[in-house]
Simulated assay, not measured.
Amino acid sequence: MSSSTSPTSPSTARAAAAWAPRVVVGAVVVALLLVGGTAIRVWQLGRVDERQPVDMIVVLGAAQYDGRPSPVFRARLQHALELYEEGVAPRIITVGGAAAGDAFTEAQAGEQWLVENGVPGQALLPVDEGRDTYESFEAVAAVADQRGWSSAVLVSDPWHSLRSRTMADDVGLDATTSPTKRGPVVQTRETQLRYIVRETGALIYYHLTHGSSDFSDPGLG
Rank of each mutant, 00 (worst) to 15 (best):
Thr12Asp: 14
Gln52Asp: 12
Ala75Cys: 00
Asp132Met: 01
Gly110Gln: 01
Glu85Trp: 05
Val197Met: 00
Ala62Met: 04
Arg163Asn: 06
Ser3Asp: 14
Leu34Pro: 07
Glu138Asn: 06
Gln192Lys: 12
Ser213Val: 11
Asp128Leu: 03
Val127Pro: 11
Glu190Pro: 02
Gln187Ser: 12
Val153Tyr: 02
Gly221Gln: 13
Val171Ala: 09
Gly211Asn: 12
Gly211Glu: 15
Arg91Leu: 08
Ser150Val: 12
Gln78Ile: 00
Thr38Asp: 13
Val35Arg: 06
Glu129Trp: 07
Pro179Thr: 09
Gly130Ser: 04
Ala152Gly: 05
Val72Gln: 10
Trp43Asp: 15
Gly201Leu: 11
Val35Trp: 12
Thr105Glu: 05
Arg165Ser: 02
Lys181Ala: 14
Val171Asn: 05
Pro10Tyr: 07
Ala123Tyr: 06
His207Gly: 08
Arg41Gly: 09
Leu60Phe: 07
Ile40Tyr: 14
Ala31Cys: 13
Pro158Asn: 09
Arg165Asn: 07
Thr5Met: 12
Leu125Val: 09
Gly26Asp: 09
Lys181Phe: 11
Val119Leu: 02
Arg51Leu: 07
Ile196Tyr: 04
Arg47Ser: 13
Pro69Lys: 06
Gly87Ser: 07
Leu193Ser: 04
His79Thr: 02
Leu203Val: 03
Ser9Tyr: 07
Val35Gly: 06
Ser156Asn: 04
Phe215Val: 14
Gly221Lys: 08
Gln187Asp: 13
Phe73Pro: 01
Ala107Phe: 01
Tyr195Pro: 07
Leu83Pro: 00
Gln52Arg: 15
Thr209Ser: 14
Arg51Thr: 15
Val25Pro: 01
Gly219Thr: 11
Asp145Gln: 14
Leu124Gln: 05
Ala142Arg: 11
Thr188Glu: 05
Arg165Cys: 04
Ser136Phe: 02
Leu77Lys: 04
Pro69Tyr: 05
Val155Ala: 04
Ala13Leu: 11
Phe73Ala: 03
Gly201Ile: 04
Ala109Asp: 01
Trp159Lys: 00
Ser11Arg: 15
Ala103Met: 12
Val29Trp: 08
Gly26Ser: 08
Asp128Ala: 13
Gly211Thr: 13
Ser213Thr: 13
Gly201Met: 10
Met1Gly: 11
Val23Ser: 06
